[in-house]
């Protein structure tokens, strides 16, 4: 079972999930956390739009929401505050308004962006293995070595 280390999109606490899982319930805050990659090619207006995986807003995508993702690519329209644990890529066709927080930012020439920015590795929490998960893996490794 391949395991992915993620952070709960609600409480930011670490979770270990199966790589194929589409969603999990956070064991810390009991919120349902979407863990599948998202491709948004439609109009979405919600308060909060989150995934513990990659999110891509295509040219046809229009999103009015606070967005949270592991990595974000915007080619369409996005209005709302963004948190991305790794990169934020704003393509030349994108129009973005809101605050951005992420580890790195790439704005293609031609992209329009207005808002506050907090970019840098220290601006976002890092997803690291949970203690339980690390112990379980160590035990599995010891067992495999002992065979």
């Amino acid at each position: 079972m391949a395991v992915r280390h993620i952070l709960c999109t609600q409480c930011d606490l670490p979770l270990d999930v199966d790589e194929t899982a589409k969603s999990v319930n956070c064991r810390h805050c009991n919120t349902r956390v979407i863990t599948e990659a998202m491709v948004v090619a439609e109009y979405v207006a919600v308060r909060r739009f989150a995934t513990a995986n990659r999110m891509r807003i295509t040219k046809k995508g229009i999103v009015y929401a606070a967005v949270r993702a592991d990595a974000l690519e915007v080619e369409g329209v996005l209005q709302g505050d963004v948190v991305s644990l790794s990169s934020i890529r704003i393509a030349k066709s994108a129009q973005v308004k809101g605050s951005l927080r992420g580890a790195s930012l790439s704005l293609e020439p031609g992209a329009t962006f207005v808002g506050d920015v907090a970019i840098g590795p220290e601006q976002v929490p890092r997803a690291e293995p949970t203690v339980d998960g690390a112990l379980a893996r160590e035990a599995a490794a010891r067992e495999a070595a002992g065979r």
Partner: peptide
């Protein structure tokens, strides 16, 4: 790189 501030790009 680290960047904290307001941004107007286009």
């Amino acid at each position: 790189a680290s960047f904290v501030g307001r941004c107007e790009v286009g």
